[in-house]
């Protein structure tokens, strides 16, 4: 049974599928840095599990995510190919986000096989229970962490719901920052044109994916 599956997660999946990898990685670094401010107590409790690594494998998204808990830091990032972890959690993106946010009951999705957990069960259970003790909202966290808005990326997300659109905007800004940092004093307009062209291509890809997504979501 899907419990309170929110629309933003569906859109977030689309976004994760379309964003360039370096931008996503940068965004995740920002999100994990932001966690320290927003959920200090949670991180303290998670630190009891240290050292521990958790690999999240959303089946409907090409990326895998690695959460590393060390005594003094919790980091969330993209997992390189071949990465292994103490615990691997596999399921649809919506299931995994629902679990992390405490909206989904993990036993339920385990019974129904929507979630598969392999590896160190003690760490998995501890992680689940500690997380469940605190109300977190990953999407709001992402919003809080990603910093100033930028317009071009928002266009991509024109069809997405408001919350994801705001994330997309901030990720877009991040992309431009990353680009600028990488290319030093190059022509900003040139960069902007390049980004805009990239965004247009992404835009088309997103529209296609969304159509496909809607077809898939329709009852047979």
């Amino acid at each position: 049974m899907a419990i309170g599956l929110p629309a933003p997660v569906f859109s977030l999946g689309l976004l994760l599928r379309t964003l360039p990898r370096p931008i996503l990685a940068l965004a995740l670094r920002r999100v994990s840095a932001g966690l320290e401010h927003r959920h200090a107590a949670l991180l303290r409790r998670l630190a009891r599990l240290a050292p521990a690594t958790f690999l999240f494998e959303p089946q409907d998204v090409p990326e895998r995510f690695l959460l590393a808990i060390r005594p003094r830091a919790v980091t969330l990032g993209l997992a390189a190919a071949g990465t292994t972890a103490d615990v691997t959690m596999r399921g649809r993106l919506a299931t995994l986000i629902g679990l992390l946010e405490g909206r989904t009951d993990s036993d339920t999705v385990y019974f129904t096989r929507e979630l598969s957990v392999t590896g160190d069960t003690e760490k998995a259970v501890g992680f689940r229970n500690i997380l469940d003790g605190e109300a977190i909202n990953l999407i709001d966290d992402a919003l809080a962490a990603l910093g100033p808005l930028a317009r071009p990326m928002e266009r991509i997300a024109g069809r997405l719901d408001a919350r994801v659109r705001r994330i997309a905007g901030r990720v877009g800004a991040l992309g431009r920052e990353a680009h600028r940092a990488a290319h030093g004093g190059r022509d900003v307009m040139e960069d902007h044109r390049a980004i805009t062209a990239g965004i247009t291509a992404l835009d088309a890809r997103l529209a296609k994916l969304e159509r496909r997504g809607r077809r898939a979501a329709e009852p047979a």
Partner: peptide, 30 residues
Amino acid sequence: AEHVRFDEEGEEMVIRLGGITMNRFPRNQA
């Protein structure tokens, strides 16, 4: 929990407790 293992072996999910097989579930079975 520290004695429980969930392993995917081929098409089956295998549950072991203290190394003892408790169950084998084919894909999609509750």
